[in-house]
């Protein structure tokens, strides 16, 4: 392990930035999971599949529009919408009939959705690796503290906080956001004052899935898109949501930062076990505070 020579200020700062940009992707995905968890109280196991579909759809859309920057930007918008449409169909045709049932059934339904979507993705897009190009303006890298840093990661560092603030404004300042938060706390009461709770749930579910798809579309230029990426992200998102506090959006942010930064510093200090670092951080957090760092919404 030749770690000693590699640890300089430049290396630390560049790993910090890589960790932060990774955390932004994780935040966008896990905030969607957390939102659904907060309103519907169901851990959406299919969230990872929607992330994967977002990445595949981004690739196909960008390819259909001839790559380039037009393809990329439209993929970034259309792929999450495509994912949202899928989730809306699944929700309105099947999922919405289960809201009266016990939670275990809802969880198992999302698991069934994950199994089905995983195989449908394999049928539609095939199992080979693929990647898409970032637009020219985001290609290459700039120098920060003397070490090169990819421009695309800087772009992620901007998108993440924008999504966070947007989600916060949405759930605190708009009427439907407030209704969704109220439905999370007491759904009978919300129904009693004449609001169609079923549609509020549908909206929350679709919004959460949209965020999952957005995460998939955003991550697609940085990794190779392939079958099986759903399994890894869903576990990470679960962990983040658990250490952050179930259903708490800022908790998802804190959890993502912990997860992303420990992971990138793990690469710096002990590459073989880099994956273990965030998990160890999770165990430490949960040992100290089993209900997560911030207050859960119910």
């Amino acid at each position: 392990m030749e770690a000693g020579q590699g640890i300089t200020l430049a290396a630390i700062s560049s790993h910090l930035l890589v960790g932060l940009s990774r955390a932004m992707i994780l935040f966008i995905v896990s905030s969607g999971l957390s939102f659904v968890l907060g309103v519907l109280r169901v851990p959406n196991v299919a969230h990872g599949s929607l992330y994967m579909i977002g990445a595949f759809a981004a690739h196909s859309i960008a390819g259909a529009l001839g790559g380039g920057s037009l393809g990329f930007w439209s993929a970034l918008i259309l792929a999450p919408l495509f994912v949202a449409a899928i989730s809306l169909i699944a929700e309105r045709s099947l999922f919405c009939h289960l809201y009266e049932r016990e939670h275990l059934m809802l969880l198992l339904f999302t698991f069934a959705l994950m199994l089905i979507l995983g195989d449908l993705t394999k049928m539609t897009f095939g199992a080979d690796y693929r990647s898409i190009m970032a637009p020219e303006i985001l290609q290459g890298s700039i120098s920060i503290f003397g070490s090169p840093f990819p421009k695309y990661n800087l772009f992620l560092l901007i998108v993440g906080p924008v999504v966070a603030v947007g989600l916060w404004l949405f759930s605190n300042k708009t009427k439907i956001g407030k209704i969704a938060r109220a439905a999370a706390v007491d759904r009978e009461m919300v129904g009693a004052i004449g609001i169609n709770v079923s549609w509020v749930f549908a909206f929350a579910f679709v919004l959460g899935c949209f965020l999952g798809g957005l995460g998939g579309a955003l991550v697609s230029p940085t990794i190779s898109v392939t079958i099986g990426m759903d399994h890894n992200i869903i576990i990470e998102a679960f962990l983040i949501v658990t250490i952050g506090g179930l259903g708490n959006m800022w908790g998802a942010m804190v959890g993502s930062l912990i997860f992303g930064i420990t992971q990138s510093f793990g690469v710096l200090f002990w590459p073989q076990f880099a994956v273990v670092f965030p998990y160890a951080a999770v165990v430490i957090v949960l040992t100290l505070k089993p209900t997560g760092m911030l207050k859960s919404v119910w």
Binding site: P43, V241, A280, V282, L286, T291
Partner: peptide
Amino acid sequence: RLYFGMLQISLGSLLWVIAFR
């Protein structure tokens, strides 16, 4: 209930990562 399940998945995944790595 739900927290129980989520925490168990989290802690179990830790063991999975160790076996995996």
